[in-house]
C-alpha cells in the first residue's frame, strides 16, 4: 500500500501527500513528501466524507459519494472512497493536476480495495 501511495505522489503534479484512512478517521497508511503529520488531515476529512455520505444517501437520495474535492486557499484535498469503510486522500497544492488526481486516484482506490 505504501508503494501505491508513493507512486501517486510521484505521478500526480502538485500532490504532496497520500493516505488511506478509515471512515472513523484513523490512518491506515500514509506517505508525505513533507514532514506534516497527516493524522489531523485524515480525521477532519473522514468527518466531511461521512457528512457528505449521509446527506447524499439519506437526504438527497443521490447515492454514495464517489469522490469529494475541496479546494481552499492554501490546501486542496481529493478524496475517493475505498469500499464501504475506507477512503483514499490526496493532498494537493493550489496548482495541481486535478485530472491526474481523479484518474490515478480512482485506479489506486480500485487496486487498494482488494488489499483492505
Amino acid at each position: 500500500m505504501l508503494s501505491t501511495l508513493k507512486q501517486l505522489v510521484s505521478d500526480i503534479d502538485g500532490a504532496w501527500a497520500a493516505a488511506i484512512s478509515g471512515l472513523d478517521g484513523l490512518l491506515v497508511e500514509s506517505y508525505s513528501a513533507t514532514d506534516i503529520d497527516l493524522s489531523l488531515l485524515a480525521a477532519e476529512h473522514a468527518g466531511m466524507l461521512r457528512s457528505a455520505s449521509q446527506a447524499y444517501t439519506q437526504t438527497l437520495s443521490g447515492g454514495q459519494p464517489r469522490e469529494l474535492y475541496v479546494r481552499a486557499e492554501r490546501l486542496s484535498v481529493y478524496l475517493h472512497p475505498i469500499g464501504q469503510n475506507f477512503f483514499l486522500l490526496l493532498a494537493l497544492s493550489g496548482r495541481s493536476n486535478l485530472g491526474q488526481a481523479r484518474l490515478y486516484g480512482r485506479d489506486a482506490a480500485q487496486r487498494l480495495e482488494t488489499e483492505l
Partner: peptide, 10 residues
C-alpha cells in the same frame, strides 16, 4: 481522452 487530457496538462 481523459488520460490524454490529464497528461497533456502535465
Amino acid at each position: 481522452g481523459d488520460v490524454l487530457a490529464a497528461e497533456l496538462a502535465s
